[in-house]
């Protein structure tokens, strides 16, 4: 598929999507289109609903209002078998890696290969070696998730996500908790995957350095609402107060860190 052909279609589209948890609005009337082949970054404060948005896109949770379409098909309307077929073309890394504790690194990465392909064991072994060297973890095949560091687990999660050479990869904070060097390597990997293999990437992050490094388009969400969507240039030059505050990381501005109902004064009074 050539780049131009690919860009024209929206591979994921959210229409008026809302999600409530225990009466609390977590995602509030979101409209988004993610196009084939692009790297789409979702940024926002902690608790703004970024992970929830990703889970809506992968069909892990269903929206309470609106519709989510993957490759033009509404996930609420397709059967679970069809959803699984779509999911086989996905990869996803989780914020806390979500590796299976009972399997070692090698078995974790092999899992999607063994479950969904008829590849011979020798070929699976070679693929595992390739994917592990991409994330810089050759030689850790035999380790269990409890025996490696959080950052390493994250990278194994990434290797697992790309094991089946997916068309779309969802990354939930792929570089948080990594040192700057490894973080840079992962950023480069995400970029390489999307440029060389035409993988569509959806990246949740609040690492401002990596945002501008990898993004084709950026969206900022706050309290479950999309504040703005645009190219890195648009965002850098945005006049929007929320975005200015977020990029500069300043404590004062429209994003109030302290909850409105419990003022700072109340806390200090105690």
């Amino acid at each position: 598929m050539s780049v131009k052909e690919c860009k024209a279609e929206s591979i994921i589209s959210l229409r008026n999507v809302s999600k409530f948890f225990q009466g609390k609005t977590v995602i509030d009337d979101v409209n988004l289109d993610i196009y084939c082949g692009e790297t789409f970054v979702i940024m926002g404060c902690s608790g703004s609903g970024k992970s929830t948005l990703l889970r809506l896109m992968t069909g892990a949770i269903r929206p309470d209002k609106g519709s989510v379409a993957l490759k033009g098909r509404d996930i609420a309307k397709i059967s679970s078998e069809e959803l699984d077929e779509v999911r086989k073309t996905f990869g996803m890394t989780f914020q806390y890696s979500a590796l299976l504790d009972s399997l070692n690194v090698e078995e974790n990465i092999a899992l999607p290969l063994r479950e969904h392909t008829q590849l011979a064991e020798e070929i699976i072994k070679i693929i595992i070696k390739m994917k592990l060297s991409l994330v810089g973890l050759r030689g850790y095949e035999e380790y269990y998730p409890s025996q490696i560091s959080g950052g390493m687990r994250k990278r194994v999660g990434l290797a697992r996500a790309i094991a089946l050479d997916p068309e779309i990869v969802f990354y939930d904070e792929p570089t948080s908790g990594l040192d700057p060097v490894v973080g840079g390597v992962i950023d480069k990997l995400i970029k390489d995957l999307s440029v060389k293999l035409m993988i569509t990437s959806v990246v949740v992050t609040h690492d401002m350095h990596s945002v501008f490094e990898i993004a084709d388009r950026i969206s900022m969400i706050h309290k479950g609402k999309v504040v703005e969507v645009g190219t890195p240039e648009d965002i850098r030059n945005s006049k929007n107060e929320y975005i200015r505050q977020f990029i500069n990381g300043s404590p004062s501005g429209p994003i109030d860190f302290f909850r409105e109902d419990i003022g700072m004064e109340d806390v200090l009074d105690l």
Partner: peptide
Amino acid sequence: TMKVTEQIEALETMAI
């Protein structure tokens, strides 16, 4: 433990 550490969700996302 697998449920609260998102391992179950990870399996579902991998179509397992």
